[in-house]
């Protein structure tokens, strides 16, 4: 059984023919669409390394059947920077040393972008820690991650204020 689905990935419309319905979004990105920036850490929704945005919401791509996401918009780490200009979250992760080995980093950053969009942390580090707890960092870069998100969130709030003014 072969199945054709349409996805918009990092702004680009793509039609994907799936010869196998078992393919998850994560494996589709990594093994079939040459987008290996999204990482597999557990493949079971237990670590967050595979976090991407689907229709603007952060989810675990390892627990999503690609077939089921027909028609959605997917944003991965590869689609976050605009050309050479880093997304404010990416820049803040570098500035605050919010990573070490870098393997969980794409997931952390996509999760952070999702968190800021959701708007429930309100600059409270404790809320950020809680809402980032679905992204495990075995190296232990949590303090830098929290600081980076605080800064990026502040920057994004100020940018929004400027836009509104």
């Amino acid at each position: 059984m072969s199945l054709s689905i349409s996805l918009t990935i990092n702004g680009q419309a793509r039609t994907v023919v799936l010869d196998d319905p078992r393919v998850t979004l994560l494996d589709l990105l990594r093994e079939r669409l040459d987008l290996p920036g999204t990482k597999k850490g557990c493949d079971r929704g237990q670590c967050g390394a595979c976090t991407v945005l689907v229709d603007g919401r952060r989810i675990n791509s390892c627990l999503s059947l690609a077939a089921s996401l027909d028609g959605t918009e997917v944003t991965t780490i590869e689609g976050l920077a605009e050309g050479e200009a880093l997304h404010p979250v990416q820049a803040a992760f570098i500035a605050h040393d919010g990573f070490q080995c870098g393997y969980c980093t794409p997931g952390q950053i996509m999760s952070a972008v999702g968190l800021i969009k959701e708007g429930h942390a309100n600059g409270d580090p404790e809320r950020i820690r809680e809402l980032m707890s679905g992204n495990i960092c075995r190296c232990g870069a949590y303090q830098g991650i929290t600081e980076a998100i605080l800064e990026a969130q502040k920057a994004s709030t100020e940018a929004n204020r400027r836009d509104a003014a």
Binding site: P36, K40, E78, L86, F93, I94, D97, F99, Y103
Partner: peptide, 21 residues
């Protein structure tokens, strides 16, 4: 200094073994 590999790591361009194909 910040990490020299920072840019690669935050953009998903740092290549880990299983990223090869």
């Amino acid at each position: 200094l910040t990490r020299r590999d920072g840019l690669l790591k935050v953009t998903g361009r740092a290549t880990y073994a299983a990223d090869n194909h």
